[in-house]
Design a protein around this nucleic acid. Structure first.
Lengths: 232, 232
DNA sequence: TTCATGCTTCGATGGTAGCCGAAGCATTGT
DNA sequence: ACAATGCTTCGGCTACCATCGAAGCATGAA
């Protein structure tokens, strides 16, 4: 007869409703934690774990470990393309699908991730640093360049000497919860956030338990001047 | 939660090994009968029937009734494209797939289908007729044009008057078993085949039960001159 | 007509896979 | 050190669905 399952194998991966929900949740290119994907699919974490291992074995998703979290993203654009094609075929025969709603805007914009800046502004900051070659990023590895060191001293009064730590890297890519792209973690990320607070550019929201970071007017301006991409 | 199965529904259709085998068998754009697809998938006809209904309901295949046979083809190129994408993803993670072998070459080339010409040459003939606007085809409906009538009289001494029949159409598109594209059936198809025999261009193979049609050297040349596409 | 072929529907069976509870690691924070 | 969180593994349960036997319709042939 024929050789192997082949196409049926990968198709059956997408064929399960729970897995399909996870995959469509990942369609925007961002990454989600296992628990979030579980909630997205309406199943328990242990079931989701089983599904995610299968998806990973099938080459549809790739994990990225992040502390005790485990982020998953689609392997590449090919996977997304096939999913789009399937969605197109499905749309012809029947029902379309509704998009998932947005979340708290303030939280999306700026918040504390452990001890460093996250959210829209955090991602934007790392983007800017990378663009101007102040840091070099390869996958999750981030390295401060010589230009970067000069930049920190000049604009933020941060000396590279202060950043070394026995068990913690200076720079680290941290997946952003709302944007699902990387922002800057590590001792540098923490030092920068601390400096923002000292300069009265920003402060954590006083509401207990809140992770929102509120920028002052001047802080917003200064931040935009340093890391802004034109208008924002 | 989310709305409907959507993408999972169509993916699960492809996800079953039997159905996947059927679909890949249809990937070349040809059409296959239900029994052939059953054999291709290694299942019984009644199981295949169930699968085919689902594939049809899901919009992946379309049936075409042909006598007591029922031919199935992929709905359109979009379906084929998605299948190719899935195959691509599957190929990355593991096993490729072997192609199905060829069949009897003589039978593929030219044979009798009921009373008219089928096989490679039969398909080629209808292609030529259509290309030169001697017939007009819409789906399974084929209509002889005025030019076509003149062509028949001039080159094959076939008068349109001889072709009318109370219960049989003059022209009809017939799905070709080997090529899985249409060839010409109806009273015209039968008349042309008969004329080929009278002209000693071709004759049915004497082997009992064989449906092979053998063309003579001159017959092949004449046929190619009338319906050939350059070199063949 | 009667027979044969191709396909479908019905009913019953069995294997597989999704699902969750409970327990086990791993990482982080106090 | 201990506790808390996030994720994984294990075991059993359940439900779905592919599968086939048997019977029922169609179409075409004799």
């Amino acid at each position: 007869m024929k050789s192997g399952p082949d196409i049926a194998m990968v198709a059956s991966l997408v064929g399960d409703p729970a897995r399909a929900n996870m995959l469509t949740a990942l369609m925007n290119g961002r990454a989600l934690t296992a628990s979030e994907l579980a909630q997205e699919a309406g199943i328990t974490p242990q079931t989701a774990s089983s599904h995610l291992s299968k998806l990973e074995a099938g080459g549809l998703v790739e994990p990225e470990k992040q502390g005790r979290h485990r982020y998953y993203r689609l392997t590449d654009d090919d996977v997304a393309g096939v999913l789009e094609g399937l969605a197109g075929l499905a749309a012809r025969t029947g029902h379309m699908r509704v998009r998932t709603g947005p979340k708290d805007p303030a939280l999306r914009r700026a918040r504390i991730c452990y001890d460093h800046l996250a959210g829209d502004l955090g991602v934007q900051m790392l983007d800017s640093l990378r663009e101007r070659h102040l840091v070099r990023q390869r996958k999750q590895e981030i390295e401060l360049t010589a230009e970067g060191e000069r930049f920190l001293v000049k604009h933020l009064q941060i000396s590279p000497d202060m950043l070394s730590h026995p068990r913690r890297p200076v720079c680290k890519a941290c997946l952003d919860w709302s944007e699902r792209r990387h922002h800057l973690a590590g001792t540098l990320g923490a030092a920068m956030m601390q400096r923002f607070a000292e300069l009265k550019w920003a402060a954590r929201d006083p509401t207990p338990g809140s992770r929102v970071v509120n920028f002052t007017r001047t802080g917003e301006k200064q931040f935009a001047a340093l890391f802004g991409s034109g208008q924002d």
